[in-house]
């Protein structure tokens, strides 16, 4: 059942494209320390707002152009100046997958020259490296958030639908209460209910919890409807007459029959988490410097300088969010088409 759904999705061009995009994004996030030439907090105050470094082919090897600062934020390439790119070079130490210590990096240039594939920000930090590290936070927050949401949504929804009566009433009134408050206000209200300054590592957890707290209601309502109708199905009665416990009935009979819905709903709502984290961090209420997240990086782009001086590379995190959200939405749509043939648009 479960594998089947994704294999089917992979057979469709759109589904395959979305899955490959997401696969690449997550791989890059996982191997961020290896691919990134610098750490998120490595500053270079002499090279603020450095444009993306150009690449040249000189002396039979790939090199980066060397720039000189003609104005505080204007850089000109020095004619003929180049620094060789060294592949698999030793750089800062890190742990692969948080386990094996290593210090090799995909590419580096000899200090004091620096490679800025996507330019540098206001303190000379490498946008490319920060984008990769930011992906770790921005991409995982959706997955963890949705797991918590779906678990709670399923438990509360299926119990409400299964037991009915006052359990159902209580759960559904709570759901309506949560759904009646506009999401962003609830997000900000919940955020301000906690301490203003939270250490960065706890902040991550806090954001996940806040987002999941807002998200479970919609899932619970739909699952409740599904379990209400599944409850009438004879196989649930057949399980009851067999003497199965409530827990067994929920996990063996209700869950598998709502599973495809859960997968589709999860895929379609992950973007909301990514955007939620981005919104909080953008407003300065989420991930704190010097950690990186896409939303936090975008908040730097609020500076009017970005537009005055065409510092376009600072908007790249926005493009990353855009691509991720689109990929999830496309994949979700494809999965929904597979699961629900009634909604299928003629596709060939």
């Amino acid at each position: 059942m479960k594998e089947n759904l994704f294999i089917q999705a992979a057979r469709r061009p759109l589904g395959l494209a979305a899955m490959i995009t997401l696969g690449v994004l997550y791989l890059v996030a996982i191997f961020a320390p290896f691919i990134a030439p610098y750490q998120t907090q490595t500053q270079q105050l002499q090279k603020t707002y450095h444009p993306p470094t150009g690449l040249t082919w000189q002396d039979g090897r790939l090199q980066v152009k060397v720039y000189e600062q003609v104005d505080p934020t204007v850089y000109e390439p020095i004619p003929g100046g180049a620094a060789p790119i060294r592949f698999f070079a030793r750089g800062f130490e890190y742990k692969i997958l948080g386990l094996i210590p290593w210090d090799r990096h995909l590419f580096l240039v000899e200090a004091p020259e620096r490679i800025y594939l996507l330019g540098s920000d206001s303190t000379g930090r490498d946008v490319f490296s920060r984008l990769l590290y930011g992906a770790q936070i921005s991409l995982s927050i959706g997955l963890i958030g949705i797991t918590i949401t779906m678990t709670f949504g399923f438990l509360i929804g299926s119990l409400a639908g299964y037991f009915g009566g006052w359990v159902d009433n209580a759960a559904m009134r709570l759901v309506e209460l949560l759904m009646a408050i506009p999401g962003l206000y609830l997000l900000l209200a919940l955020r301000s209910a906690f301490a203003a300054h939270v250490p960065s590592d706890q902040m991550y957890l806090l954001i996940v919890i806040i987002l999941a707290f807002i998200g479970w209601a919609a899932t619970a309502r739909i699952i409740r409807g599904m379990s209400l109708s599944l409850r009438q199905r004879q196989f649930v009665l057949a399980a009851e007459v067999l003497g199965q416990s409530t827990w067994k009935i929920l996990t063996r009979h209700i869950l598998p029959n709502t599973f495809s819905y859960l997968i589709v709903a999860a895929t379609l709502s992950i973007p909301a988490y990514i955007l939620g984290e981005a919104a909080l961090s953008f407003l300065g209420l989420g991930i704190q410097e010097p950690s990186a997240s896409w939303g936090l990086m975008l908040s730097q782009a609020q500076d009017s300088k970005v537009f005055m001086m065409n510092l376009w590379w600072l908007l790249i995190p926005g493009a990353a969010i855009f691509v991720t959200v689109i990929a999830y939405n496309v994949l979700g749509d494809v999965l929904r088409d597979i699961v629900d043939p009634k909604m299928k648009v003629q596709s060939r």
Binding site: M1, R233, Q234, F235, L237, A238, A239, E240, V241, L242, G243, Q244, S245, R252, H253, P256, N257, F259
Partner: peptide
């Protein structure tokens, strides 16, 4: 629950819906 299925078992009218489609 000790009686259901063990002492008293049921079969119903509609066999097609009495079985869980996913197992």
């Amino acid at each position: 629950r000790r009686f259901r299925g063990k002492e008293i078992a049921y079969i119903f009218q509609e066999p097609s819906t009495s079985l869980n489609p996913v197992f």
